[in-house]
Amino acid sequence: MRVMLVTNPFATFTTAAGRDTLANTLSARYDVDVEHTTHRGHAGELGARAAADGYDAVVVHGGDGTVNEVVNGILGAPDRPSPVDPADLPALGVIPGGSANVFARALGIDRDPIVATAQLILLLDSGSRRPISLGHTLNRWFLFNAGMGMDAIVVRRMEDKRRKGKKATAQRYFATTVSSFFSSSVTPPVFTVTVPDREPIEGVRFGFVSNTGPWTYFGTRPIATNPHTDFDHGLGVFAATSVGILRNIALGSQLLRGSDNPHARHLFRDDDVEWVRFTGAEPADVQMDGDYLGRYTELEFGTRKHVLHVAAAQPE
């Protein structure tokens, strides 16, 4: 089996020794080419090369942003004129190396890289390939979530902190989220959310679109904004029309408790829609899979069924 191992030496929780151990372990069983990312977008270039050169699998050791880049490289843009059968593309394997590792954990991959490597070897040896659906917007694929408004503001502020040398820990994300809601210098946008067969939701202050659940993790605790969204169905929508502290503390406590039905008077939620549209008069912050993308006035979200094969067990 021919495998490309893509590692991100800048990921939050990877080490040189750990990367070497992973490379040596996989090389003992497979024909492995090791590639270290050196710049933003490099992982996408490597994913595209792996698809063009006919690799059987691409294993990514890094955070969610690196995995996202590799997937976009493997698949090409959502609007490409001649999509490739996913069975003819490399299977994707993930060894967690970031701070949250939402995608890997949603697939049932252990957080511990050593345990995850053992899982991956069993899956590759058995030829296990699970087809999953992906969301897309801005002509890019997203693996688990994208958002406009407050969550993107938090991601932007976290990226500013990381550039200053601070690690992206769960506690720092939590503190940044709380401070963003309380800060007078943070002005969330106002936009409209449209979904099929419903009147537009006006006055939205922040909105999430999920491709699976959970939306993220607080340490070991899953935060599920759309508990019934998964890799085999449509998109989840979570749109709030208020940034009021008391309203959102109550809503946030439901998410922290793991509610199976998060609800509030200022919240619209649907766990399975075909498409979603966000439109606003002023540009708003946007994030995808935890990476900040910039500011936009309009986003159209869609989904493509079973477009990617992953080395993961089938859901029970």
Rank of each mutant, 00 (worst) to 15 (best):
M1L: 14
R2Y: 13
R2V: 12
V3Q: 08
V6I: 15
T7Y: 13
T12E: 11
T14F: 15
T15V: 12
T15K: 06
A16H: 15
L22Y: 11
A23T: 09
T25F: 15
L26K: 07
S27Q: 05
A28G: 11
D33I: 02
V34H: 13
H36A: 13
G41M: 05
G47S: 11
A48E: 10
A50C: 11
A51G: 15
G54P: 11
G54L: 10
V58R: 06
V59F: 00
H61L: 04
G62D: 08
G65W: 00
V67K: 03
N68K: 01
N68Y: 02
E69M: 01
G73Y: 12
I74K: 07
I74H: 03
L75V: 04
L75A: 02
D79P: 05
D79C: 06
P81A: 15
A87R: 02
D88N: 09
P90F: 11
P90L: 10
G98Q: 08
R105C: 00
A106I: 04
L107R: 00
D110P: 06
D112S: 09
V115T: 15
V115A: 15
A116Y: 05
T117V: 01
T117E: 00
Q119C: 12
L120R: 05
L120W: 00
I121W: 03
L123S: 03
S128D: 04
I132H: 00
S133G: 10
L138Q: 14
N139P: 07
W141R: 00
L143Q: 06
G147R: 00
D151E: 01
D151I: 01
I153S: 03
V155Q: 03
M158W: 12
D160I: 14
R162V: 13
R162T: 10
R163A: 14
K164E: 14
A168E: 10
T169H: 09
A170W: 13
Q171H: 07
F174S: 10
A175E: 10
S180R: 03
S185Y: 13
P188D: 05
F191Y: 10
E202I: 09
G203N: 01
V204W: 03
R205S: 06
S210H: 11
T212P: 06
T212S: 08
G213A: 14
P214G: 07
P214T: 06
Y217K: 00
F218N: 12
I223W: 09
P227H: 13
H228P: 09
D232R: 04
G244P: 08
R247N: 09
N248A: 04
N248V: 03
S253W: 14
Q254D: 12
L255T: 06
L256Y: 15
L256K: 02
R257Q: 14
R257D: 12
G258C: 04
G258P: 05
A264H: 08
D272V: 04
V273S: 07
V276S: 07
V276Q: 01
R277C: 11
R277N: 10
T279Q: 04
A281F: 14
A284C: 05
D289S: 03
Y292D: 05
L293A: 10
T297F: 12
E300V: 13
G302F: 07
T303I: 04
K305I: 02
K305G: 01
K305T: 02
H309L: 09
Q314Y: 13
P315A: 07
P315N: 02
